[in-house]
Design a protein around this nucleic acid. Structure first.
Lengths: 132, 132
DNA sequence: ACGCAGCGTTACGTTTACGTCAACGTCACC
DNA sequence: GGTGACGTTGACGTAAACGTAACGCTGCGT
């Protein structure tokens, strides 16, 4: 039952997305579920792709980048050149993410300093109340 | 000369923003420079506010949140209650930022694992070429 | 047979933080 | 008295990733 086709609702429940999102991804050519009459049917392969899409988003890839990666993956099934391209792109992304983390760390440190200052001020108020 | 009013261009050069940005902030009531005829003149106080705005942005506050903080700051000049509110808000932001960093770390680790896998595959290709 | 839940398409709305003209004013300078 | 350089307002455009109607078809339960 785990490898049967799923309806759009099943997919939404499984992956925590809305129908609109799935149709949107389809529109962007990230997904291409089978049709049975009007209804969309998502195969195991579609589910694998959706997993990759969502993972890509967690990594901060844009949908467009994800699409390129999926295309590469599809077309270059194990072919070295394609893998290398994917690899390079991921490396760049990693660099981006580490830059982001550095900035975030910096901002966190700065904010903590401000908070320490504020805490000091508040403690001052507390002492004033106590001394009165 | 450091505490004289500045023109919009001076501001842009000093803070690395565009005129459009300054007008936009004014529109959003984040800034309210004096006018001399038509021209905007930014006082030392305006510059201080802009610093705070940009710092807030680095912290991930939205402009709307920044506006609220500036209002609090203005109206509650040193009054404990206002300071406390600002403090609380900053604490929440800090929590957000640390959550973000945790997610980012997680994503980085995951991406690194994928990269390691890719590197392995690429090494395999290299070995194949060497063995031929 | 009736009604409604659920899926479908199409198309416009939303959010944030500005960018990008367009059309005009004004000031110094040559 | 042009010619730029810089300033102004106003309005529309942009990006991403969907949300939100609006309206129709269809199957299912009663």
């Amino acid at each position: 039952m785990s490898d049967r086709d799923m309806t759009i609702r099943d997919m939404c429940d499984t992956f925590g997305v809305t129908p609109r999102t799935l149709r949107f991804y389809e529109d962007k050519e990230l997904l291409a579920p089978r049709r049975e009459g009007q209804k969309r049917l998502y195969s195991r392969r579609d589910r694998a792709r959706l997993s990759l899409i969502l993972r890509g988003k967690r990594f901060g890839f844009s949908l467009e980048q994800v699409r390129q990666l999926l295309d590469l993956y599809d077309r270059g099934h194990g072919k070295e050149a394609q893998l290398r391209q994917t690899y390079e792109l991921a490396l760049e992304r990693l660099a981006d993410m580490e830059r982001q983390r550095a900035e975030l760390d910096e901002a966190i440190a700065e904010l903590k300093r401000e908070l320490a200052w504020g805490a000091g001020k508040l403690a001052e108020f507390a002492r004033m109340r106590a001394a009165e």
